[in-house]
């Protein structure tokens, strides 16, 4: 959709994909409703809803995409164009724990490289890869707003700061 006021008309044509749309529990549906209630236009809830789908299904899979298109009365391309713009939305499967090492300047000069190297060695994967058991994905990401407590990484949504290799070991070893 181009840069214009959002088209509030419902779609005349239901969206089709070769999969069945995702189904969620009534609690999740209620959570989705709470997000939708915040906005005059359903489309505004697209990012919060994508996070929910991701949480429930591991990543934004085709069934989740179809669910969102139907739920928000949008076309598949509307979901796709948004999903691929944002770096936190995963359209491909990802490890259970996503280790995101900040690589931007403040962390970089305080040892981010060493943390990445340590994780890489410990997990036996390179940056951008996932362990064969699907448990860890290792990424380098841009500034996470922890520059004063560098170096740091985020495991899923959790911040871990002032890292040292020993601390990294302790964090990764105690993950459930």
């Amino acid at each position: 959709m181009s840069q214009q006021l959002i088209n509030i008309q419902p779609l005349s044509q239901p969206v089709e994909l070769d999969v069945a749309p995702a189904v969620f529990s009534s609690e999740v549906e209620a959570e989705i409703d709470r997000h939708l209630a915040k906005y005059p236009v359903p489309r505004s809830a697209i990012l919060p809803l994508m996070f929910i789908v991701q949480r429930e299904r591991g990543y934004l899979d085709p069934a989740g995409v179809l669910y969102l298109a139907n739920r928000l009365a949008l076309r598949i391309t509307d979901i796709w164009e948004v999903a691929t713009f944002y770096s936190m939305i995963y359209t491909e499967p990802i490890g259970k724990y996503h280790i995101q090492v900040c690589k931007t300047l403040s962390c970089k000069i305080r040892g981010a490289g060493m943390i990445t190297a340590h994780c890489s060695k410990k997990l036996g994967i390179k940056v951008g890869e996932t362990t064969p058991d699907g448990r860890f994905t290792l990424s380098e990401v841009e500034c996470l707003g922890s520059c004063g407590t560098a170096p740091m990484f985020q495991v899923n949504f959790d911040y871990h700061e002032n890292l040292t290799p020993a601390k990294v070991d302790q964090i990764l070893d105690t993950l459930p």
Binding site: L47, P48, Y86, S87, M88, V141
Partner: peptide, 8 residues
Amino acid sequence: YTHTGAGA
């Protein structure tokens, strides 16, 4: 209301 970005 709170709203979330997604990495951009």
